[in-house]
């Protein structure tokens, strides 16, 4: 085998899959120790893989590694934690750790939009619904993973195939140096937000408008479905004017 990269990628993902499988919550016996060992091994393998390929280029940024480790570790916690509230909060942490990765790629607008929309709006409602629903402590389906092997195998097999395929792409398809720095130059010249706005309003105008209409329809539908018709007549009959309340009560 002339190209060693795909094999290294497959080994890394196999270690990661084993780690997730052993970290999954289960009721019979805890395999967290084995999961932690495989997890550290997978992270180390990923580090070696990235460092040997990207050290010295823009991918070798130290902030990239810090944010990536936090993002991956908290993403693992999202699916392996037993308490749903903590899972949702680790998801917030994942989003907050992915934002710096986008900033490194000069996508400031996307980074902040991600934080505002996901961490600031969507996950607040998630966290809240889970908090209200889980007042009685974790239930059996939270303490035991269902079909962990199939889920882990399917997910990691797909990821390994995609990542391994990326390493055998011809050199000119790999975004390295020239393309990244060219777009970064244009972004600093024009402004990141202006660039995104320009693309949205010219190249992808129809898709953008359709997405907007779709969201509007979804919102109207949600309101229409959740509205409950209040029987006003019943309420009117049972209510008493404030001045009369208590007048009909007989004294002892």
């Amino acid at each position: 085998m002339s190209n060693p990269w795909p094999l290294m990628v497959y080994v890394t993902f196999a270690l990661g899959g084993l780690a997730i499988y052993f970290l999954m919550p289960r009721t019979d016996r805890s395999t967290r120790g084995a999961g932690a060992i495989f997890g550290v091994a997978a992270l180390a393998a990923a580090m070696v893989l990235c460092a040997s390929r990207f050290l010295g280029t823009e991918g070798g940024n130290v902030f990239f590694y810090l944010s990536a480790v936090v993002a991956v570790a908290s993403a693992v916690k999202v699916i392996t934690h037993e308490k749903p509230v903590y899972s949702a909060l680790y998801f917030v942490l994942t989003v907050l750790a992915i934002a710096p990765l986008l900033i490194i790629q000069h996508a400031e607008f996307l980074a902040v939009a991600l934080v505002i929309i996901y961490a600031g709006a969507i996950l607040v409602t998630y966290v809240f619904v889970i908090m209200l629903a889980q007042q009685g402590g974790a239930s059996i389906y939270d303490r035991r993973a269902r079909q962990p092997f199939v889920a882990v195998f399917g997910g990691f097999f797909t990821m390994a195939l995609i990542a391994g395929q990326m390493t055998v792409l011809p050199e000119e398809h790999v975004v390295q140096g020239t393309l990244a720095s060219a777009s970064a130059e244009r972004a600093t010249e024009l402004g990141n937000t202006a660039m995104i706005g320009g693309v949205m309003m010219t190249d992808y105008l129809v898709a953008f408008e359709i997405a907007g209409v779709l969201l509007l329809v979804a919102m109207v539908g949600a309101i229409a479905m959740s509205r409950k018709r209040v029987p006003t007549e019943v309420v009117r009959a049972s209510a008493k004017p404030p001045g009369q309340i208590g007048r009909e009560v007989q004294p002892f």
Partner: peptide, 16 residues
């Protein structure tokens, strides 16, 4: 370049 959005993002996290 996105200072305003940064403030908005920090404000939206404040609920946590």
């Amino acid at each position: 370049g996105i200072g305003l959005l940064y403030l908005l993002g920090v404000g939206s996290l404040g609920v946590y």
